[in-house]
């Protein structure tokens, strides 16, 4: 393995890394940012493999296996997160989630954030107590101002004290 070959392949790894960096910093779609990350990882593992061949031992390849494992984990987690984020706001734009960042930072492109097309789904509270429209209140619990009608024992007791 000649030195010029090492040089060329290290350059190829660097170019892949730089392309992934540009893509990650410029793209706004969540999936494409994630693919840019994968491009960067591919460049890094190419670098490791070239050095493994150059030094003629397996340490670089083992490290590349580790990189591959972590990138597979990251792929699974990122795609699951993209699915759940899309379910929430119905857009793949990363700037729809700008309110998760620090508020003192100025927005990079102000004003082009459009309104959401779908309504958000907030959690619903489970109902507590009885719904008076659904079930009639038992007559013993009903309060009435009319003295002639049969009143509940609590109301009659109050009236007696008065």
């Amino acid at each position: 393995m000649s030195h010029s070959e090492v040089q060329n392949l290290l350059l190829l790894g660097g170019i892949l890394f730089a392309i992934g960096l540009i893509g990650f910093l410029t793209r706004r779609s969540l999936i494409l940012m994630f693919l840019s990350l994968e491009t960067m990882l591919s460049g890094v593992s190419l670098n490791l493999i070239v050095f493994s061949k150059f030094h003629q031992n397996y340490q670089g390849q083992i490290l590349a296996v580790m990189v591959l494992t972590i990138s597979a984990c990251e792929a699974a987690i990122a795609l699951a997160m993209v699915v759940s984020l899309y379910r929430r706001k119905a857009t793949l734009d990363v700037q729809a989630w700008d309110d998760l960042s620090e508020t003192i930072l100025p927005k990079s492109t102000a004003g082009d954030y459009q309104d959401l097309e779908h309504e958000e789904h907030y959690p619903k509270l489970s109902p507590a107590g009885l719904d008076p429209l659904d079930r009639p209140v038992p007559s013993s619990m009903q309060a009435s101002l009319d003295q002639d009608q049969k009143t509940s024992p609590i109301v009659s007791e109050v009236n007696q004290r008065a």
Binding site: G14, F17, A18, L21, L25, R27, S108, Q114
Partner: peptide
């Protein structure tokens, strides 16, 4: 989609990546 067309900060990203790649080269 409109967010596929409009990128964030292509100048900063290009400067960063280019300086990195030039250092590597």
């Amino acid at each position: 989609q409109w967010y596929d067309v409009q990128l964030t900060n292509p100048v900063i990203a290009t400067v960063v990546a280019t300086s990195l790649l030039m250092a590597i080269a």
